[in-house]
Computed example of a mutant assay.
Amino acid sequence: MLLIKFVPKKKIREAHVVFLFTQVVTWLMGALVVEKGNIKYPIRTFFKKTIKSNFTFEYFIFPAWNVLFNILYPENKNTYIKALYYLLHTSLIIFFEVIALKYTKLIHYKKWKWYWSFITVFIHPFLFN
Rank of each mutant, 00 (worst) to 15 (best):
M1Y: 02
M1V: 04
L2G: 06
L2Q: 14
L3F: 01
F6V: 04
K9C: 04
K9F: 04
K11C: 00
R13Q: 07
A15Y: 02
V17W: 10
V17A: 03
Q23G: 13
V25H: 10
V25D: 03
T26L: 15
L28D: 02
M29E: 06
A31C: 08
L32G: 09
E35W: 03
N38T: 03
I39K: 14
Y41A: 14
R44D: 03
F46Y: 11
K49G: 12
K49M: 02
I51Y: 10
K52V: 00
K52N: 00
S53E: 13
S53H: 14
N54C: 14
T56I: 15
T56S: 14
T56F: 10
F57W: 11
Y59N: 09
I61W: 06
F62G: 05
F62T: 10
P63I: 08
P63M: 11
P63F: 03
A64Y: 02
N66C: 04
N66D: 03
F69R: 15
I71S: 07
I71W: 09
L72Y: 11
P74G: 01
N76Q: 13
N76K: 15
N78A: 01
Y80I: 09
A83Q: 07
A83L: 13
Y85E: 05
L87D: 06
L88H: 07
L88D: 07
T90P: 02
T90Q: 02
S91W: 08
I94A: 14
F95P: 00
F96D: 00
E97Y: 05
V98L: 12
K102F: 02
Y103Q: 09
T104Y: 06
K105H: 03
K105D: 05
L106V: 06
I107S: 08
H108M: 11
Y109K: 14
K111T: 09
K111Q: 13
K113R: 12
Y115M: 04
S117R: 13
F122D: 02
F122A: 01
N129D: 02
N129F: 01
